[in-house]
Design a protein around this nucleic acid. Sequence first.
DNA 1: TTGAAATGAATGAATAAGCATTCACAAAAT
DNA 2: ATTTTGTGAATGCTTATTCATTCATTTCAA
Lengths: 197, 197
Amino acid sequence: MRTSDKHSKIIGAAITVFARKGFFNARISDIAKEAQVADGTIYLYFNNKYDILISLFEEEIGKIILEVKLLLEKETDPRTMLHIFALHHMQLMGEHKELAEVLQMELRQSNKFMKEYRNTKFIEYVDVVSAIIHKGQKEGVFRESLLPGVFKRAFFGALDETSRLWVLSPDHTYTMSEAAQQISDMFIYGIMAEGRS
Amino acid sequence: MRTSDKHSKIIGAAITVFARKGFFNARISDIAKEAQVADGTIYLYFNNKYDILISLFEEEIGKIILEVKLLLEKETDPRTMLHIFALHHMQLMGEHKELAEVLQMELRQSNKFMKEYRNTKFIEYVDVVSAIIHKGQKEGVFRESLLPGVFKRAFFGALDETSRLWVLSPDHTYTMSEAAQQISDMFIYGIMAEGRS
DNA sequence: TTGAAATGAATGAATAAGCATTCACAAAAT
DNA sequence: ATTTTGTGAATGCTTATTCATTCATTTCAA
């Protein structure tokens, strides 16, 4: 077992187990079994059960931030940027259901139970959205009256809740790309019929 | 203690304790102490710890649905109806922070851990939104291309996430009414500056 | 009217099960 | 030979739930 990276193996196993049972119902021995490792080995790589969850967040959200920032790098139109963010988020959640379930559920818990822990990675992720709004306002494309702090939460919440339900329910009446398109259009252009104000 | 309604007293205590510690970290004895009742008494009114959480959902969301349906009854303009829904939701969460925390956090858990339990009350609540969209589409006010199933989730998610962060953080840069106004405007009219398409 | 018996609501100490974490030891690597 | 890495049974704590008992109220026979 020299070559295989135990740390990642345990994180991967934890994603699977947390997704299946949730953080509190997951047993360390479940994660150990899933990772094909002894219970005690986990404590060579993590301080405790919470620490696994926190590391999982930091690492996975860290990757997502890198990806989306790379995608946005070349783009300048704030509308397109919003759409790219939405599309990337939804496709990612659609393709990594286990990770999606863990992030969607446990993110809320971590905010609450580990008051000492500020989830800076998550804040950084959502702030990508408010940065786009600021840029759009500076360029006169988006309304000045918009509060970027409200928008980023509303936009992220819309994506999060829509993908959450998609991941949970077995029958999908829409694809994640469709949903991303619908949501970015709603936010950018509103929902009024053509020719109505 | 003959006259006081123990059932409601326990539900009220559970809201406080679940909000403070979360469902899994809450002890039955905490709830009992908060309700000024013996541990065993709780089992005269509820089957087990889960049952308290489920009853709490059903009863509290039930009340919210009644309220919002009453408010919408007299209104016919679908745009105003969306705004009323948003305003009512946000003001409620702002005024009942403990309930807000429990609904926002534990709702997600219940979906997951109690697979047998379909949260029909929650579905009914969110379907109020899709009904408004249907009405607006029928009247030609809202775009035909909108998927009401996506809209209801996006709209609810936006309200939920925005109120969640508002309840969590101590410093509020916006009021709940402002947020409700911003969010319904975003969805109805989009975020483009005047005169831009 | 009185007080003995019945009822059922309320109590909280005891039970029993679950599970995170530790640690004495083993295997592998250097 | 020494250090690093891995093991998994044992430990010890936590807590949901139970149940024998107490207490307050009502019923009703004398």
